[in-house]
Structures are given as C-alpha cells and as structure tokens.
Design a protein around this nucleic acid. Sequence first.
DNA 1: AGCACGCCGACT
DNA 2: GTCGGCGTGCTC
Length: 843
Amino acid sequence: MIAKVIVDVPSRATDRPFDYAIPADLYGWVEIGSRVGVPFGGRVLQGFVIGLAEFADIDESKLKPIAELLDHIPPLSPDLVELAQWISDKYCCALTTALQAMIPSALKGKADSVVTLSEDEDTALFSNAVYSEAPWLAYIRASSGPVRMAALQERFPADAAAIKQAVKLGALTEQVSIRDRLAVRKALTVFPPEQAALAQEALANYPARAAKQRDVLRYMLEHPEPIALTALVEALSTTSATIRAVADKGWITIREVEQQRDPYAGRDFKQTEPLPLTEGQQAVYEEIAEALDAESSRVFLLHGVTGSGKTEVYLQTIERCLQHERQAIVLVPEIALTPQMVERFKGRFGDSVAVLHSRLSSGERYDEWRKIREGRAQVAVGARSAVFAPFPRVGLIIIDEEHESSYKQEESPKYHARDVAVRRARQHGASVVLGSATPSLESYAAASRVLSPTQTDASASSRTPGGAALLAMPNRVGNRPLPKVHLIDMREELKAGNRSMFSRQLHEALLDRLEKGEQSVLLLNRRGYSTFVMCRSCGYTAQCPHCDISLTYHQKSRVMRCHYCGHAEQAPEKCPSCESEHIRFFGTGTQRVEEELAKLFPGIRVIRMDVDTTTEKGSHEKWLTMFGERKADVLLGTQMVAKGLDFPYVTLVGVIAADTSLHLPDFRAAEKTFQLLTQVAGRAGRHELPGEVVIQTYNPDHYAIVTAQHHDYAGFVQEELKHRRFMSYPPFCRLIVVTLSDEQLTHLITAGDKLAATLRQLAYESGVKGSIDSDGTRFIDILGPVASPIPRMKDRYRFQCMVKYRGNAGAIELLKKAIAMLSGPQGQPPVQLSVDVDPQVIL
DNA sequence: AGCACGCCGACT
DNA sequence: GTCGGCGTGCTC
C-alpha cells in the first residue's frame, strides 16, 4: 500500500503529493487525514495523508516508508481533506497551508532528534583523544537515556560540528521524530479501592505507625471518586510518597488521566429555556426548520434589524438540528465573541458547546477542539476557523454578522469563512444561515433579484446552489422602535462658534443621561488610523526603515513599533530631522475624547476600550462586565463597542465623527460606514428604555449617512449598487489581487510587467471579452501593475495587479497558468507572489 | 522551505 | 592547496 502525503513545506515546488510506503505495523492505521512523520530530502517532516493507492506513481525503489504515525485518531476526516483541496484551488494556496489551517496550532509538529551512543560503536573512534575529552561526550555518557539534540546544541554550542561528525561516523545514533508543540495534558489521578469491603478491613488492621497512610485510605473510602494526586496531597497535607505507599500495597491505584483545559471551568452558566418566538421569528424559524428536516443544503440570508432577536432564532434552529443528531457550527466575528455571547449558547446547550477563539491559549483551544473531534461537543461557537470544526455530520452552519470583513483571513490561506461554510454545508447536506442587520452587498445580491441575470455574477450564484433565500425580520422584539437618529452637521457647529468635539446636542444628551443615571456608548470611528509620531515644526513623521509605513506609538513602553515587520525603536525626545522639541504623539483619539469628557462633565465615569486598554487577556471581558454592572456612565471606544453588545440601560449612542471611514480609498468605504453606523445605533434602546442616537458628521448629505439615519438598508443598497455598477466593482464582478514582492526594484518591475502581459495574452486567447463595459456575461480585465498601497515592506518592494472578472471567465485558472509560465522548471516564481481571491480590504 | 552539491576568493 | 562563500536543484 502507498500513502499520498502532502509534506509540510509551503512552497509551490513541493505543493503536490509524495508517495510513501506504509510499513507493515502501520497498515490499516494510516488513513486519509492521518498526520504522519516522513523522511523528506534528508530530514523528517510532518505530513498529511490525502490519499491511499495500490501502486506508486514513481519507481518503487525510490519509495521511502512513513517514519511514524502521529495520532491514533486522524486529526482530519476525508471530507475536510477534500475541503482543503477546494480551498487550495480556489484561493491559490499550498495544500499544506489549507490543511494546517484546519487543525489547532498545538498539532503543528516539528522534527525533534535524540542521540544515543551507538552500541557497536568503534571504540577507537571515542578513544581518540579529541573526542574522549570532549565535555559533550561525557555529558551523553553520564545521562541514562537518549539525549535531545536541542539540549546538546544549547549546552555545547561550539561543538555542533564535532557532534554532527560523530553522528556521521556512526559513533552516535540519531533518532528523529515529530514532536507536537503541545501535548495532551495529563495528571496523576488516584482511584478508590475496587473492593471497598476488603479495603475497609485492611484499614482496620493498618500498621499503627502508618497514620498518614491510614488517612489516605480512609479518605478514599469516604470519598470513592477519582481525585487528582495533587488535590489529595493538599487535602490531607501529606506527600505523594505516602499516597504511593498505599498504592504500592494495592489498596488504591494511581493512573495518568487526560485533562481538559477548560477556559470556562468553574463558571456557572444559568440554563435557559427557549423563549416564545415573535411572529417574524417564527416564520423564519419554520423556513429554516423545513430545510433541516429535509436535510437539503440550503443557504438563507437572514436580514434582521438590530434587536430583532436573531440569536434566539439561531438557538432554536440549532436545537432542531441537534434533534436530527447533527451538529451545528456558529461563526461569530472575533470581536463580537464576548462572554455575553458565549453565555447564551452555554446557557442553552450546556457542556455540549465548544468555544473556539483566539483569546484562548493554544492549549485551551486544542482541548476545545478535541472535545469536538471526540464527539463530546455538538455545537461549536467560534471565530472564522471554527468553520473547520471536525464534526462528523454537520447539519447547520450559522454565520452571525455575515458582512464582517474579519471572516476573510488576511494571511494564507486567504479564505472567506462564508464561502467555505457554503461549500462545507454542501458536502454534508447542511444548511447555512447568514445573519446580519446590514448584509454585505455580495450576499444580498446573491439572495435577492436585485441584479438582472446578465448582471449577476454567475459564479456567485453557483456558489449558492439554487441561490440564497432571503428571510427578513424587519421589527424589533416586542415591537420596540428603532432609536431615533439625529444628524448633526459639524460645519454648522463651527459656524456657531462651537469648537469642541461635542456638538451642543450631544453635549446636552450626555448631560441628560448623567442626570437620569442612564448609560451612553460613544463611538470614535477611526478606521485606518493609529497613533503616530509627528513633528509640528517640520512635519517629520517617524517611518519604519524597512517598510513604507508610519511607526505606531505605544504609550506604555514609549516605543514606536512597525505593525508589519515588528521593528521597534525608542520614541525620540527631539525631532531627529529639525531638532525641534515640538514632536508630538498623535494619540489614539479615544484618549483625547476621554480627556475632553472629563473636562466637560466633571466626575463622569468613562470606560475606554481601544487597542491600548484591551491587549491584556480578559481585559475586554472585564471592561464590559464593569459597564454591564453600571459602574460607568460612558463606554467609549472604536469599532469594538459597535458590535453585538446588549446593555439595557444604554439609551444614548453618540458617534463623534461619522466620516473618517467614508473617504478611505476602498470601494467598500461607504458600505463599511453604513454598517458601522447602523450597528452602533442598534446598541441603543434595546430594552424598555427608548434609545436615541446622535451622529456628528461633516457630510450630512452623503447617502451612506442619510440612509443610516433612517435605518434604510434598502435605500442604501440601491444607491450603493449604482456606484458599484458604474465603477464595475463587486457584486458586479469579482476581484483577485496579486501582490509581487522582491528586494530588487528592477526585478520586480520586469516580473510585474511580464505577469500582466501574460495574463492579458491568455485572456485574449481564451476569447473572453476584455472590456469593462462589455455586456457579455464573461469578461476579464487586468489592471496594473501598480505600486501596492504599502510600497515597501520588510525591505521588499511591492507591486500589485488586479484582475476583475465576471462569470466563468476562468480567471483563477488563467492566473495559475500565467504564474506557471513565469516560473522555473521546478515551479519557483521569479519573485515572491501572493494571491488574494475576493479581497476584502483594498487599501 | 531546507539542505546538498557545485564552482570561485582569502587563508594555513 | 584547502575552507567556505551562497547560487541552482531536488525532495517520494
């Protein structure tokens, strides 16, 4: 038998299966999805088995055997392997990158070697004076078992060559194996006597002087449950030796037991019962339930206004899904994965919920993942990568806030969780629910008939077989009104002599809430901005020496850091360019707002949430809890205060400046602004107390702001679609951005021009219409190369080409072909190439 | 990605 | 005459 193995080398040259012989003792254990250690080019690497075959594709004499099998249960199932292949195809990434993204990072094994003295070693070799006096040799001799090579390297850094030589000559035997980054945590556990009666008798006759041992045995008889050794030691203030002594006499047993790192251990989640559904919720629920009962793979776009009770619909459809003995996955944007959210799921489904998000330690994440893999969880709630939760029979995938750009991974594999979810659901006959108060234009266009057939992106609708069904929940639970939104023209404020960052109306509204003891949320929309250092005399800004980007100032450490390469330097006292002392750190903005609040409203209690105050683990949670307990009057922050929060005493939402995200050079700028305003407005008046929203802007006539004021999603979409059609942007076409980078500008220019020319030639040959204005259903257009928005990063220059296409223009295949044509015989590209299919941020 | 093999400068 | 620089090439 032959195993087809993808080795863990993420390069184009090795992005194909390699054949390995399956040794007799692993026969039947190696499956599709197994993780193995294989010899590859003189070293041992981790790899994934993606296929089994009777015969090898190459000369059998060249075959090497699989060195080891790394897990008893394969970490991946065949359907996930297939999904990885689809991702690798669609998003142009190495298959190993896609596979690796599906398993917790704890399972990223690396080669680890140990050495022992060879049994039959030629003693002459070691009697050689050079060796016999070597301290490293003495060290190996002195140790009882094999010695880790890494330990030798650390202890005797100067002797690396000699040690390698000894291995080469056969005096030392080296054994390489794959070691995981993190192991399953185990703890010694004490088990009670199996035959209590006998033990009881023994207790009575226990040697008089062994009082402590008697304590142990008595305890275990009184509490006949397994207990951690350490806990027992503490409970009886004894030592492990005493306990072992009892075990040695055979009365109790001590065994290693696998532990669960439970991030929510010790937390009591109050169990909740399903709430009665409103008419609107009921209708939506029944539609989805019908698909679940029929086990047909359908996609629903659930457009429900803020406060319309989407979460309750999720909970009850999951319930229905579980009744069919199928599992459910809930994706939530990282930022919205708050304790509040987790509580709702744990409260309804208890222990069968596994939570996966980036704030967990890698050990915790590994254990939550194992809970899914081993069938101890039926519901997975998590960020983007939870779409890969290793359930055997997925019945439902819910994507909350589906418009969030964080569902697109920025690093390779640059997948979009929404599209992966649709694909995975199809494999399992599962349904997908995309929920949002402000659906992305792509999803909305796919689900409604906004676009005529010729304008519709054909491949988008093929992504969602039969098209997505649009479900609407236009009313809030309890028919509470959406909050009244006031637009304030800040130009008028200035004219009236108000130079403060608070308009008179916002000022008054805040004062009013303070008097009533109600709470306010203030949003500072500063997407795309960060703290930077600038000289007020000469305009000098601190730049990264390796990247064309401003350094970000971190107040705590007084260090300036580059977000892209990690370069860090001390913040200067004087301007390095003009020696002036007027060098300033342009703060987060939230800080300035906080100061101003303190000045205007003496005694006001403000919680500020931004990158500075939420980096610590659990701090995010801490602030929100405090706010929930009404220990503050104002929650002030950036985007993170806009998402998913639900506090009953919040009756005022203020947006300091709505426009900052409006004029970013990104075609989604208006959409992002509309979404943010709508989302944050939705934080107000969710319960008995009515809400009010004040939006300050310099563009009170902009459609994104006006439609947000009137909670008019349809109006926004209509206007935005006009622009997208005119400019030929999604959903009227699809995009691919190829970024080329190299240390040498000349190389880069040559390669960039060549890539664009090849693409244009291939597009022309394939007969796809090349004009943007073409009314054909297929078109492809290649733009660039142009300098990237960050023209230099980590000392490498960067260019990009954009491919716009519509229909099945085969753009991805064309691109792959073009890259292959530019690459060398082993597939090595002339410069570094990175492909982003369906990019979310075009900055 | 690594690591090996392979062809040209500063040392014993 | 050798040690070693890192430029192509291959890994079942």
